[in-house]
């Protein structure tokens, strides 16, 4: 089987005066987890809903395996989707909810119990969804997404409503599915969480692409910032400067070297025999990257950095 692909070309959506998604283009590959990140209101949900045929693009295309969702021969067997505003009839049991979808799509009914088992809802499957907690509903959404054993999994803020154990469980499940060859595209505004889950990130801001690439490359691109304390700050600064390593003195005995690596700084120190009291290395966090890529001024400051 060909690996699955997701491709978005010049995707644009206008709601009245609001340009929700603006000429967005990117592609996503199989066998990895791709984070689709952006502040609230950046257009993540709208873009994903266009990918799933729920929202009509104003212009541009969103393609799964080269075709729009609406033209997929077996959509549920191709793409599984976990969406925030997807609903359940409160009076219907989880099992009946899934069975109705299985019937509509030709998925065998035995698969319903399998996915309930997979998300840990087997024993609650016959209960009415109205009595479910947020986390249970989110698990049921995931069960629905996995019903057709799709090769593509699209998740919009899947961690919402999950407790820490649930999030850890979800993370390992997504990693496992990607290792099995699945294409996983996951939107999130929880950056610390995303950083632990994704291989690659797509950052969007105000509807257009702000950055895309391997998480490690994006974070490592600027190098590290190395902080040192030494008995001879003046000599350290001149030694570093002599090797073209950008650095500055800070208060007291501290020196900060930028856009470098701990190894490069360590060699300088060893060669020139400078006494070091302390040395710390900090790489840019996904959060710092995110803030530098998106319009920081308009960002809500209450975004939780971790969960």
């Amino acid at each position: 089987m060909q690996p699955a692909t997701v491709e978005v070309r010049h995707l644009t959506k206008r709601f009245g005066d609001v340009l929700a998604v603006d000429d967005l283009s990117f592609s996503v590959e199989a066998s990895r987890v791709t984070g689709f990140l952006g502040p609230n209101g950046a257009g993540k949900t709208t873009a994903l809903r266009m990918l799933l045929g729920l929202v009509r693009p104003t212009s541009g295309q969103a393609l799964v395996n080269g075709v729009p969702y609406r033209l997929l021969a077996q959509p549920v067997r191709t793409v599984g989707a976990v969406l925030e505003s997807s609903g359940f009839h409160p009076g219907r049991s989880a099992r009946d909810h899934l069975r109705a979808i299985a019937l509509a799509t030709g998925v065998t009914l035995s698969r319903v119990d399998e996915v309930l088992e997979l998300v840990g809802l087997r024993s609650d499957g016959r209960r009415r969804v109205g009595g479910y907690s947020m986390g249970m509903r989110q698990r049921l959404e995931l069960a629905r997404a996995l019903l057709g054993e799709p090769a593509v999994l699209v998740l919009d803020e899947p961690a919402n409503g999950l407790d820490p154990q649930g999030i850890a469980w979800l993370r390992s499940l997504l990693r496992y599915l990607a290792s099995e060859g699945m294409l996983v595209l996951i939107s999130s505004h929880l950056l610390a969480e995303a950083a632990q889950t994704v291989d690659e990130v797509i950052i969007i801001d105000r509807g257009h692409l702000a950055a895309k690439g391997e998480l490690a490359d994006l974070l490592g691109g600027g190098g590290s910032t190395v902080r040192l304390r030494t008995t001879e700050p003046e000599r350290l600064v001149s030694s570093l400067a002599a090797r073209q390593i950008a650095c500055r003195r800070e208060e007291g005995d501290a020196v900060v070297a930028e856009s470098t690596t701990p190894e490069a700084v360590g060699r300088v120190v060893a060669e020139d025999q400078i006494v070091i009291l302390e040395m710390t290395n900090s790489t840019e966090s996904l959060e710092e990257l995110f803030f530098s890529m998106t319009a920081g001024g308009s960002l809500p400051t209450s975004q939780p950095a971790s969960t």
Binding site: R70, L72, L83, A104, T105
Partner: peptide
């Protein structure tokens, strides 16, 4: 209208986009 009231239109139309 129950599909829209309970937002089951989303899973319904994901299963059958036509």
């Amino acid at each position: 209208t129950g599909e829209f009231r309970h937002k089951t239109a989303t899973p319904t139309f994901l299963a059958e986009p036509r």
